[in-house]
Design a protein around this nucleic acid. Structure first.
Length: 802
RNA sequence: GGGAGAUUGGCGUAAUGGCAGCCGCGAAGGACUCAAAAUCCUUUGGUAGCGAUAUCGUGCGGGUUCGAGUCCCGCAUCUCCCACCA
């Protein structure tokens, strides 16, 4: 073992802290800014796993390079510290979740420091800090004031057996995660955020983001914008009507019945008395089923019952039956569909199951399934013979004329259920008179802190734990009137939706972030985190940011300019790491045995950042071996005495390639190929008889981004007293990359036959001459007619012969 | 059912449309050593050949091109995400 990693790591860690080396002054605008952000972790009881350092190392490398390139770098870290696991731990151990959470945070912080990340720890924040969640609550109040927060009765997962409300994550296949008891949907009073008001902005803002394509696509699907037609269907003999949404208005003549969702309000009034009992029973069963089980059972079988009522098809006046069926979702469109069994697979199955008629309106085979393709229309009066696009247009025009329809944009996106019946979250800063009046707390009353409780379990009736808070906390007088505090808390997403702003100005008690500072620092230049947050966290954060823009808190409209997801690190056997598989790798052990630098280097070298890749102990040993090999250059004979103050230029080219490749690859986060180039450079150093000190210094600066401890130590060994963290980034000369003669492949009919040595600026005549002088290519050229001669300087010569 | 991505040596991987396999792991050989480890130096896609070399080779089938791992069309397999969205 050629260096003592434990001693080196301790030495430089202490030095960095003592010198406050990575503290960032965000009010210093004299240098260009760079904001490199990691998705902050949930501080779980297990501590860091080897997946965490992957993304963190990536942003750390870029941060370190940017500092040397003269940027003012903001590279912060904090804790997403509210959340269910801590609460469950608290319930189990009958302790307050805060103690456990703080303890975990201390452990995480220590582990991150151990790994040498250049975070500005003076900006550390946690979502559970009252100084932080004061502003989380403030944003909620602002949303309420702007009509974006409202109360509604919506179905939640309720487990009668456990007597408690469950989060979606706690429901597996319609059963409770603990105990496996059935879970039903039950309406309950909830706070909602009107994210749908931002559907259009959220969709449009995706354009122009430097994000993974897949993530943009996922968000687009989630928002689910679709353009179609809204049609009014009168209910026969009642004077009432309902709206349906369709993207296939061209098939309107093929509509043979309508379906309402079980939640549809019209069911209360239009059902024929003879069907009332049957419909009520069906609705009750359907709404009690959890969404998952409803989905699972109805895929096999389309259930539903006739309401006894009839609708009138506005295009032809035909009377068609109205059904209620749970394959129609209450929460999408208008909760009602026009059913065209001949041309929609779901309607087809339902019609078959219930003996409903079919009218084919597009030529195609409907003997075994609905025909959903394009074709000539039939049985459709004035659109007969037209294709889908033309028929859509014609029918839409007719509907507009008669006032029965209009174009309509629909979104899959639903409003955000923002309450949790939990203790360990931000209290929602609202007061209720119990009769529908909801008033927000004044800013001066924030933060509203969590009251201490003895028992954190939700009540049997589904009431949140805070409902058992002391009366002194719960009851509030306002203008002579009695109010009760809101007892729901916010979801974990709340705190993580705006934390990137707070880092810029973490100790500000006047506002959540000084606008002068956010104008300078936002958007985040590089955001790295797991793909599991592709939709929810990133959508919520964008929503918050757009809202903050609209109320004038920030100027921008998108918080994260560039986003990258790190891939997962699997176990050595290629399976997911898990305790049950016994293949979990603990970073503490790796750092103890091989050092933090080796861990960082290995994770960056194992493959492209975004790919999933397996852990490899031999790969880790290889990383360590490379570091020792590099270290030996500045620590051992005979290499040490080869180091010269003068450059003999033998390594100029190798060095220029190193600097160019690493600078570009660090920027594009292609660390594996940058490291390969660093290895090439070290291999070249071993072959060289003289080593220019300047080259080694440049190499060490580059290496230090990935392996900061050994980097600092080598810098020190090269005769420097201070840290290299703010030394200028190495440069290279373009001329060093140019070779006098370059190898150029000579191919005949596309098959390589020889390699020519040509000057990079050699002309075509020169190339042609060299090609026909080649002995190796001779047999393939002799006696043939040259049909074409292709010459790409520096690349290839291709002779096409007949 | 829809979407996104992937498929290259024994393994992880690399290749602005231009010599496929850089770099690493593993393996083999050599130097050093009494010996081993460590280190240093070679070799390492398959087949044939002592060798120069030849030949085959980037999941499968087509296409574009002087030239395709790379671009286009179709297919297979895998991974992830969404999914009764009218």
């Amino acid at each position: 073992m050629s260096f003592d990693h434990a001693a080196i790591e301790k030495k430089w860690r202490d030095y960095w802290e003592k010198e406050r080396l990575f503290a960032c002054d965000t009010s210093d605008f004299s240098k260009p800014k760079y904001y490199a952000l990691d998705m902050f972790p949930f501080p779980s009881g297990q501590g860091l796993h080897v997946g965490h350092p992957e993304g963190y190392t990536a942003t750390d490398i870029v941060s370190r390079m940017k500092r040397m390139q003269g940027y003012n770098v903001l590279h912060p870290m904090g804790w997403d510290a509210f959340g269910l696991p801590s609460e469950q731990f608290a319930i189990k151990n009958n302790e307050h979740p805060e103690g456990f959470t703080r303890h975990n945070i201390d452990h995480f912080r220590e582990q991150l420091k151990m790994l040498g990340f250049s975070y500005d720890w003076e900006r550390e924040l946690a979502t559970i800090d009252p100084e932080y969640y004061k502003w989380t609550q403030w944003i909620f109040v602002e949303m309420f004031k702007h009509d974006l927060a409202y109360v509604s009765d919506v179905p939640v997962n309720y487990c009668p057996e456990l007597g408690t409300v469950l989060a979606n994550e706690e429901v597996i296949d319609g059963k409770s995660e603990r105990g496996g008891y059935p879970v039903i949907r039950m309406p309950m009073r909830q706070w909602m955020l009107k994210i749908t008001a931002y559907a259009d902005k959220l969709e449009k803002g995706l354009e122009g983001l430097d994000w993974p394509k897949s993530t943009i696509e996922m968000q687009r699907n989630w928002i689910g914008r679709s353009t179609g037609v809204e049609i009014d269907f009168p209910v026969a003999f009642t004077g009432l009507s309902f709206k349906v949404f369709t993207t296939r208005v061209d098939t309107l003549f093929g509509c043979t019945y309508c379906c309402l969702a079980p939640e549809h309000p019209l069911l209360k009034t239009i059902v024929d008395p003879s069907k009332k009992e049957e419909v009520e029973r069906y609705v009750k069963e359907a709404t009690a089923k959890s969404e998952l089980s409803r989905l699972a059972s109805s895929e096999k079988e389309k259930t539903g019952v006739f309401t006894g009522a009839y609708a009138v098809n506005p295009i032809n006046g035909r009377k068609i039956p109205i059904y209620v069926a749970d394959y129609v979702l209450g929460s999408y469109g208008s909760g009602a569909v026009m059913a065209v069994p001949a041309h929609d697979e779901r309607d087809y199955l339902f019609a078959k199951a219930h003996g409903l008629p079919m009218i084919q309106v597009i030529e195609g085979d409907i003997s075994n399934s609905a025909y959903e393709g394009d074709g000539k229309h039939m049985n459709s009066a004035f659109v007969d013979g037209l294709d889908i696009a033309a028929a859509k247009q014609a029918i839409l025009e007719r509907l507009i004329e008669t006032g029965h329809g209009r174009t309509k944009v629909n979104y899959k996106l639903r409003d955000w259920i923002f309450s949790r019946q939990r203790y360990w979250g931000e209290p929602i800063p609202m007061l209720s008179d119990g009769k529908g009046e909801e008033i927000p707390l004044d800013e001066s009353e924030l933060p509203l802190t969590l009251p201490p409780l003895d028992d954190f379990t939700p009540s049997k009736d589904g009431k949140p734990p805070l409902a058992r808070a002391p009366e002194s906390w719960l009851k509030v007088e306002r203008n002579g009137k009695s109010y009760v505090r809101e007892t729901n808390t916010m979801p974990q997403w709340a705190g993580s939706s705006w934390y990137y702003l707070r880092y810029i100005d973490p100790h500000n008690d006047k506002c959540l972030c000084d606008k002068r500072l956010s104008d300078h620092w936002m958007p985040v230049d590089l955001y790295v985190g797991g793909a599991e947050h592709a939709v929810l966290h990133l959508l919520y954060a964008r929503f918050y940011y757009k809202f903050l823009h609209d109320i004038g808190v920030v100027s921008g409209t998108e918080p994260f300019k560039r986003l990258v997801h790190q891939g997962m690190i699997l176990g050595e056997n290629g399976e997911k790491m898990s305790k049950s598989r016994g293949n979990v790798v603990n970073p503490d052990d790796i750092v103890r045995d091989y050092g933090a630098d080796s861990l960082r280097l290995f994770e960056m070298f194992a493959g492209p950042l975004s790919e999933t890749k397996p852990w490899s102990t031999t790969g880790l040993v290889g990383a360590r071996r490379f570091l020792e090999r590099a270290y030996r250059l500045v620590d051992e004979e005979p290499y040490l005495s080869r180091i010269k103050a003068e450059n003999d230029h033998s390594l100029d080219r190798s060095y220029a390639k190193l600097v160019k490749k690493c600078t570009e690859d660090f920027e594009s986060l292609s660390f594996n190929t940058a490291i390969a180039e660093m290895m090439v450079f070290v291999n070249d150093c071993y072959k060289a008889s003289n080593l220019y000190r300047g080259h080694l210094e440049g190499f060490v600066k580059i290496l230090s981004c990935i392996c900061p401890f050994i980097g600092e130590e080598m810098w020190h060994k090269l005769g420097h007293e201070k840290s290299l963290a703010y030394e200028p980034w190495p440069t290279y000369e373009e001329k060093d990359l140019v070779e006098e003669k370059k190898k150029v492949a000579l191919s005949v009919n596309g098959k390589v036959r020889d390699v020519l040595l040509l000057a990079p600026d050699a002309g075509e005549e020169e190339a042609r001459e060299a090609a026909f002088l080649s002995e190796k290519a001779k047999p393939y050229l002799e006696g043939k007619t040259v049909k074409k001669f292709v010459y790409v300087p520096g690349r290839i010569v291709n002779v096409v012969v007949a």
